[in-house]
Amino acid sequence: MTEQQERTGRDETEEERADRKWLELIQEVRVAQTGVQILFGFLLTVVFTTKYDTLSDTDQTIYIVTVVLGAAATGALIGPVSLHRVVSGRRIKPQAVDWASRLTSVGLVLLLATMASALLLILRVAMNDDFVPWVVAGVVVWYVVCWFVLPVWTRHRYTQ
């Protein structure tokens, strides 16, 4: 068995592995991109509603932070596409895959923060209750478990 096969479990060259990893990454990013773009689009409309002017200063601040987080998440999750386009044909796909993967991870963290702050704002307006931060914290814990803890546990549990 070659060293390459031992490392990856596949009979593929470094370039073939980068191609495979790129396709897998792009499929993953498509899911997150769609969600963040829809959320960001809705967030952009809130400021133009009559309800926005009635929000407290705190709620308006939460809204602004949410929009900025949504913009940052959108940038990070669209970044891999731009990265690929700029470096395409330069024979650096393995490095591009690594950077695209990092951007995607940052984008997921920013998406988590965007979702949490949007949920906080919506529940504050809808419920106006001291229980809201606890509900948001519970949802954030759920996201962290689903998006980070379970994948890391699975990786640790089933790989050497």
Results as ranks from 00 to 15, higher is better:
Leu44Arg: 11
Thr45Gln: 14
Phe48Asp: 12
Thr49Cys: 04
Lys51Arg: 14
Tyr52Ile: 04
Asp53His: 15
Leu55Gly: 09
Leu55Phe: 07
Asp57Phe: 09
Thr58Asp: 13
Asp59Thr: 01
Thr61Lys: 05
Thr61Gln: 13
Val67Asn: 03
Val68Ser: 06
Gly70Ala: 09
Thr74Arg: 01
Thr74Ile: 01
Gly79Phe: 04
Val81Phe: 10
Leu83Asn: 00
His84Tyr: 04
His84Cys: 02
Arg85Cys: 02
Val87Leu: 04
Val87Pro: 00
Gly89Gln: 09
Gly89Trp: 01
Pro94Tyr: 03
Val97Leu: 01
Asp98Asn: 06
Ser101Leu: 04
Arg102Gly: 07
Arg102Trp: 08
Leu103Asp: 03
Val106Leu: 12
Gly107Cys: 01
Leu112Trp: 06
Ala113Lys: 07
Met115Ala: 12
Met115Thr: 12
Ser117Ile: 02
Ile122Cys: 13
Ile122Leu: 13
Leu123Val: 05
Ala126Val: 10
Met127Leu: 15
Met127His: 13
Asn128Phe: 10
Trp134Ile: 07
Val136Thr: 11
Ala137Tyr: 12
Val139Glu: 02
Val141Lys: 05
Tyr143Met: 13
Val144Ala: 07
Val145Ile: 11
Val145Ala: 05
Val149Asn: 12
Val149Leu: 14
Leu150Val: 11
Leu150Trp: 14
Leu150Met: 08
Pro151Phe: 14
Trp153Ala: 14
His156Glu: 08
His156Ile: 04
His156Tyr: 12
His156Pro: 03
Gln160Ala: 13
Gln160Cys: 13
